[in-house]
Nucleic acid binder design. Sequence first.
RNA 1: CGGGGCGUAGCGCAGACCGGUAGCGCACCUGAAUGGGGUUCAGGAGGUCGCUGGUUCAAAUCCAGUCGCCCCGACCA
Length: 480
Amino acid sequence: MAKEGITPRAQDYSQWYLDIVRQADLADYAEIVRGCIVFKPTGYAIWEGIQRGLDERIKATGHVNAYFPLLIPKSFLMREAEHVEGFAPEVVEVTRGGGEELAEPYVVRPTSETIIGYFYAKWVRSWRDLPVLINQWANVMRWEMRTRPFLRTAEFLWQEGHTVHATEADAEHETLMILNDVYTDFVEQEMAVPVIRGLKTEKEKFPGALRSYCIEAMMQDGRALQAGTSHNLGQNFARAFDITFTNQNNTIQHAWTTSWGVSTRLIGALIMAHSDDDGLIIPPRLAPTQVVVVPIYRNDTERSTVMEAVQRITALWRGKLRFRVDDRDNLTPGYKFNEWELKGIPVRIELGPRDVQQDTVAIARRDIPGRAGKAFVSQSGLTERIEALLVEIQQSLFDRALTFRDAHTFDARTYAELVEGVERGFVRCYWAGTTDDERRIQEETRATIRCIPLDQPASAGRCVLTGAETTQQVVFARAY
RNA sequence: CGGGGCGUAGCGCAGACCGGUAGCGCACCUGAAUGGGGUUCAGGAGGUCGCUGGUUCAAAUCCAGUCGCCCCGACCA
């Protein structure tokens, strides 16, 4: 029973996504600024929830927040060879200011490794200054050729962590700790989206990094979405920006740096992982509003008794549940039911004259849409019942997403199986090919190696392409 | 950069071939009734027809130019 104005997923998945964004009032196109969107209050509230969950974890692991300039001297970008090459095509330049041509143009940051590297070089002198553990919440700009709300926009919001360490081992530990304790934990626990942790291949890694790790999630069309990345930058940026320190033996050494980020793209992941043909579904732990109350009445007398009961019941929720009462008078209850389902509120409580008499309410859960997810229950113990239901919904969304991913993950032994598998989801296979092989497969199948999973099989197998024996498995998929 | 399409009310569109001073649906405003799964009736407001120029007594409509947006591809993640 698809809602009005929402294209069913099976008909056109990409249009379905755009419909959800529009209908659930998450974003508006900033048609006057190419490739940009407006994060409307509902969409921004989801981002605030993401920020809260990540910021807590980032701080709990010893990091602090700071803020660096939006504009970066163009020459900075040039200092790291791979980095320039990687970002040059999508950089926006500022060449004038105060009505005059600038001596040196600035670029609008596509990411901040370079400018932060410059300051870290100033700040770091001794091994006693390390580690530097700083995060920044910021906007960045990349002139993308083709944009989609949240998934790829010219300007987007994110956090970028930038750290400096004395040794390679420390940097590697930091990179993996962020991947595990911050990103994976947040995305799985709060967003209820299961992820695969892995290493990027040379072809897919961050420009300038030694190694890039990532978490990859599966969307409901079987395509992969990179939900977060964590890079061990080695000494590449330390060399380019001269970040050095004197160690305990009074020797000057280049430091080891890392960077890691997740962006507003996560909102896209959230939508595509959970939502259905009736609209958005937001996992309870992240939902700006967890419970909506729809009062039902026919006249002023009924209205006052019903509203009285609503007041009495919701008074118990303060500090426990994020809720709102939909007391708009010009809309029918049926309309409101549909609207709140469309907007993905996890639990809906309906309360009418009959409920007042019988000491009941109707309780509906969003993950089971329509009347099927609705039950009449007693008012006593309602708060606890809702709290338990929210936990249950959170778990059921995660389980559902995991079951879906497993059902759409295929082991391929031959190239033909790989080609067939990426049509429908993730393909797991042994791989001993080269970067050129990857490129060729991408041309032929539009699929790329999403990652080399951290969880690897115990035994060896034969490469899906070359037939060579290898112990390394990779995951192929088409990606957003 | 190549191919295609589109600019008329907030949104979606008709009107254009055949020139005569702009219309429909939804949304919006007012009132009344309705109210447990997208409520009904009545009334109302809202448009320099993307922009510039030309043809004409008369241009949304014909002609020329120009700007912008969308889709497909290339590119990127």
